[in-house]
Design a protein around this nucleic acid. Structure first.
Lengths: 147, 147
DNA sequence: CTGATTGCAAACGGTTTGCAGGCTT
DNA sequence: AAGCCTGCAAACCGTTTGCAATCAG
């Protein structure tokens, strides 16, 4: 099965050990769309490995992210979320139901946003209240400490 | 004292009752800069009302935000943060120390970001890893339900 | 064989809730 | 007087940790 080979290669590439739970975890997550929470991932993986523990899910999600196996992750509505969409995109966060939906960069029309028209409506029907931009990186203080 | 008048007016305007702890809470928060967490606000308010409880701080922060007395709030590093900066701005989040710093829109130079140069450095020395844009608003499903 | 990884259970930190007494309107 | 607001303590939820047994390299 080629998935097996792929995962072995991935692990070798990133210098982490191949365990059964890691492989199943990885495959399961690849099959999930959106922004699954650890609990959701756990529930899904449990179908294939009923004995797996939530702690293992957490440990390995962190490992995947640290080692670069998983692309990125974002903190939304207070729980850890993993980003499954590998294409460049942004997020629509509903202030009522808190659901997070992806949008392509182009659909946003940034040239019209950010100014003085807070109530614009996107093609999807989403009414924009405000735009929050987070620039993630390393501050100069932490760069200095890194030596 | 004019602060008292201002706060009374604010409460009337937003239809909430005036209590001593609310007033002190509000004044204290106005005097804080950055993105204080409830614990930080609590510690600060405690200096003027030693008997205040953390639960009251939480309840009132939520009330302030709900009723519009406080401008906006953002969820960063998993804890509730209140936005004290009323000017339009964005956030620099350090991926190492997690500290959040404000940036004016202009300093970001969006025209150069978002493309294929992930490692640009801002004037402040902050090295950009990625940009995360959240568009907050109401999705069409929730608009339909609001009737 | 040695060290990393697992599963469990207990600890943890931030947040919320139920309740009895006190305060605002 | 009626009801909202407070402070306390317990509950809660998502996440982390310590540990002994097990597994990968």
């Amino acid at each position: 099965m080629q998935d097996g080979l792929t995962f072995r290669a991935l692990c070798a590439e990133h210098g982490i050990a191949v365990t059964h739970q890691r492989q199943v975890l990885y495959e399961t997550m690849q099959g999930m769309h959106g922004h699954p929470s650890p609990e959701e991932v756990y529930a899904s993986v449990k179908q294939r490995i009923p004995s797996i523990s939530l702690a293992t899910v957490y440990k390995n999600i962190h490992l995947f992210v640290q080692s670069g196996v998983l692309r990125e992750l974002s903190m939304h509505h207070g729980t850890l979320r993993v980003e499954m969409n590998k294409d460049p995109h942004h997020h629509l966060v509903c202030s009522v139901c808190k659901r997070v939906t992806d949008v392509e960069h182009d659909e946003l029309g940034f040239d019209r946003l950010g100014g003085d028209e807070p109530r614009m409506r996107l093609a999807s029907g989403f009414v924009v209240e405000r735009v929050s931009v987070d620039v993630i990186g390393v501050c100069s203080a932490c760069q200095a400490q890194a030596n």
